[in-house]
């Protein structure tokens, strides 16, 4: 009796996941790591259009951006997902940082306020994700607490994670350090801007999400 019940539950769960064709794939990471650049690359490759604006100024993405029904293929494999680009997660936001980019004080304060709301939304959205690509800047210290907190929160929620070390086209990038910081995760180095190693990224995505 118990075995029949177990088989029923297994079949039910299997069918449930089969039907869930459009998973939510989140892009998370600290500000200016290249989440939107990667989102744009993904959308350009598979939809032929961009997703969001990219600048050098931190907190350019201050609202959750969603691109629905992205289908990617590799050989016989195919996955479909709704791509969720999130604002960069930070522990501090100072409007004076934006003044350095020539912004007026009023606009800088507005931007800081929007950025704080963006961080809150990004954390709230963690619960909605089915899988997450954590985008890190490979030229920066991977042991930053923001990185560790994001990954720890995903682990606590049993959400599959792919770690991307972005900006490998830059001389300062240190992929080995990124890999050493997260030995228990699948880590891939890319340049979202130039498209370096992007095929390996898609392969890794299939391994983690497919």
């Amino acid at each position: 009796m118990v075995t029949i019940f177990e088989k029923f539950i297994k079949k039910f769960l299997k069918n449930l996941f089969k039907k869930k064709k459009h998973i939510k794939l989140g892009l998370y990471g600290p500000p200016n790591a290249g989440k939107t650049t990667l989102a744009n690359k993904l959308c350009e490759d598979w939809l032929g259009e961009d997703m969001g604006k990219v600048t050098n100024m931190p907190h350019e993405t201050r609202e959750i951006q969603i691109k629905e029904q992205v289908h990617i293929k590799s050989g016989n494999k195919e996955i479909s997902f709704n791509l969720v680009d999130t604002p960069g997660i930070a522990t501090k936001i100072d409007y004076e940082e934006f003044l350095k980019f020539g912004m007026s004080e009023k606009k800088a304060k507005e931007r800081a306020k929007e950025a704080t709301k963006g961080v809150i939304d990004a954390i709230k959205w963690l619960d909605n994700m089915d899988a997450v690509v954590v985008v890190l800047d490979a030229t920066k210290d991977p042991y930053s607490q923001v990185n560790i907190t994001i990954i720890g929160n995903l682990q606590a929620r049993n959400i599959p994670v792919l770690i991307v070390g972005n900006k490998i086209d830059l001389k300062k990038s240190k992929m080995k350090k990124v890999e050493a910081a997260f030995p228990q995760y699948h880590v891939v180095g890319i340049s979202a801007k130039n498209g370096n190693n992007i095929d390996e990224f898609y392969e890794s995505l299939f391994k983690v999400v497919g």
């Binding site: 961080v119 963690l126 607490q145 907190t149 994001i150």
Partner: peptide, 8 residues
């Protein structure tokens, strides 16, 4: 871990 996220 969840508390660290909530702290942020």
């Amino acid at each position: 871990k969840e508390e660290e996220g909530e702290l942020i």
